[in-house]
Simulated assay, not measured.
Amino acid sequence: MERMGRWPEDARGRLKHAAIALFTERGFDAVTVGDIAAAAGVTERTFFRYFTDKREALFSSQEEYNALFVNALESSPATQPMALVEDALRGGATFFPDGKREHSRARQAIITSSPALVERESLKRIRLTEALSAGLVARGVPPRTAALAATSGDGAFALAFATWIAEGEDRPFDECLTEALDLLRSLHP
């Protein structure tokens, strides 16, 4: 006889999906942890096994997300700072397959509706920029150069993301990223 797991299968995924649906329907402030748990078919206690608060249902993949960038940077054959950053950004782009576009659009709409969520999203971007900068320093790039390259890369990535989730956009994320990087390079011919 197969033993059932202690927590429902993919409770984390169901909680994240329920949170997005409820935040979209009612607004972030009008939704409670209890609402999210009930919609996902779990208890509030189960919710707190995965997330510290309802905001984290939108931001819970920080370590996984950053690792895509940092691992790509660490394994890059490049030697120049911006080439290293570009390789890191291409690694991060894999987090956004086409099937995730509608989810990303909904998530971003929720975030922009709340100053507290905008602040949390900004902290997420700062942590990524710091991780990229540290990765560049570990590759021998001087700290100030690393900080500037990482910050420039973050700006290009943010532009690519905004383009990718724009209504009517249907190009893959990687194409949006290439366009943003080309624009960044064009600033200093």
Results as ranks from 00 to 15, higher is better:
E102D: 15
A131Y: 07
V141K: 00
A150S: 14
H103A: 10
R144Y: 09
F96S: 06
L73Y: 00
P97D: 01
A116H: 01
F96L: 13
A138D: 11
K100F: 08
P142S: 09
A106S: 09
V137M: 12
L184F: 13
R120Q: 12
Q80P: 01
H103V: 13
F96G: 08
I110P: 04
S122R: 07
A72T: 00
I110M: 03
R107D: 09
R90L: 03
R125D: 05
T129N: 08
R90M: 02
T129L: 02
G92S: 10
L58N: 00
E86H: 09
F69G: 03
D154W: 06
A180W: 05
D87L: 03
M82H: 12
A93C: 08
K100D: 14
V137K: 10
S113G: 15
R185I: 10
S122H: 11
L136D: 05
A83H: 06
L128S: 01
E167R: 15
P142Y: 06
A162P: 07
L159P: 01
A149I: 15
I110A: 04
K100S: 14
R105C: 00
N71C: 06
S152P: 02
V141L: 00
E56V: 10
A78R: 02
T129P: 00
A57C: 08
A57L: 02
L136V: 08
L58S: 03
L123S: 11
L68M: 08
W164I: 13
F95V: 05
L148N: 07
Q80T: 06
A67V: 00
T163N: 10
A156K: 01
G92N: 07
D87M: 05
S133F: 00
G168V: 10
R139N: 05
S104E: 12
I165P: 10
A158C: 10
